[in-house]
Design a binder for these strands. Structure first.
Lengths: 203, 203
DNA sequence: ACGTTCATGGTACGGTCGTATCACAAAACT
DNA sequence: AGTTTTGTGATACGACCGTACCATGAACGT
């Protein structure tokens, strides 16, 4: 019964199936047939909507990145009150933690892509982040604002501090991901560090 | 010409072949035949010395971990002079950076194993580090020594600071690995952070 | 009304993968 | 010397994998 169908919607469904099975069985192990079964369609349809596995994978990566940026933006917008630099930076760093299931899926699959990209022709040099070091820029800016506020000491190097905070957050994230650390301990580390950066002697 | 042969040596050669090809083509893509070709032996021999691919992979992981611990220990022993806490911590954090080729290989393959372990029955719950959070213990201890010295402020929480430093180092490492950051900038971030932790007002 | 396009199913093909099997020569043991 | 063990090669097997091909019915254009 071939009713006319929305291609983009179909592609989205299949992509979501891809991400689910990639999380469940590992990206390296996902085959076209698995994706088809997960999406509840025939193998042929996966071929139909994505011409090849490579294109499917690339689309999956793009989707993943877009979704994560959107989610992070939403998180930032959801900070209550009129957030100062400290609250915003904290929200930013927390967003990089695989705390809920959606975030765990993202981190797992995203990391898989990153590892894959290190030795895969087609994936290498792919847009892994919307704007690379946009986050670095943002955090550095917020720290500078904190210095203007007087909540961040003048001796702090905003750029290096931003790099170090983001790297820490990423490191904690993978620690959580591989089960070496739990979420509360990661949150505690982030809060501790922010407490030390924002000595907060002014308002 | 079946001369009597040293099994352990043969296994080592094959394992090294495995690690080389895992770095070159990606761990997910390595097959028994690739390993055999890289080691210059027949497929049969890889089966002979390791019964199955799973055992080969597990042995590869063990080798990788042992080698890295040994290397890190050597680095620590090689710190010149009579190193204080600061120098030792710095050496520890630097050792986690994929700076030279050997280290890059380690990080790449190790990360691949970690990702694989997240969805592979046999790899999950495998000894991924000799003693988990041995590093954390060590760094925390060194920071405490610094506090006794007076080179580290008393308000520093040694444990949380250790966690944050190690997470940062790990994060910088993967940043370098995926080409998002270069080694000098990672080193700069580490030095900056250590400068701020070790305010060094005593001797 | 009819031919074309669209959406879909089924299935076959060539390749690769891990593993198993068969064969056989050199060495070691007795 | 004869037999058993050990190291090695070649090759076969069954399962998958990504892709290509063929068929077909519903919907649409004219």
């Amino acid at each position: 019964m071939p009713r006319r169908v929305d291609h983009e919607e179909r592609r989205t469904e299949i992509t979501e199936a891809l991400l689910r099975v990639a999380h469940r069985r590992g990206l390296h192990a996902v085959g076209m047939r698995d994706v088809a079964a997960e999406a509840g369609v025939s193998l042929r349809l996966v071929q139909y909507y994505f011409d090849s596995k490579e294109k499917l994978l690339l689309h999956g990566l793009r989707t993943l990145v877009e979704r994560f940026s959107a989610r992070t933006a939403a998180r930032l917008a959801a900070v209550p009150g009129s957030p100062g630099p400290r609250e915003t930076v904290e929200a930013l760093l927390m967003a990089a933690l695989p705390a809920d299931e959606e975030s765990r899926v993202f981190h797992h699959v995203y990391t898989s892509y990153a590892v894959l990209a290190m030795s895969d022709e087609a994936l290498a040099g792919q847009p892994f982040t919307g704007d690379p070091d946009a986050a670095e820029e943002a955090v550095a800016g917020l720290l500078a604002r904190g210095q203007a506020d007087g909540t961040v000491p003048a001796e702090v190097d905003a750029r290096l501090e931003a790099v170090s905070l983001l790297a820490m957050s990423a490191g904690l994230g993978t620690g959580v991901l591989v089960g070496q650390r739990d979420v509360p301990s990661a949150v505690a580390a982030i809060r501790y560090r922010l407490d030390r950066v924002f000595t907060g002697r002014a308002g």
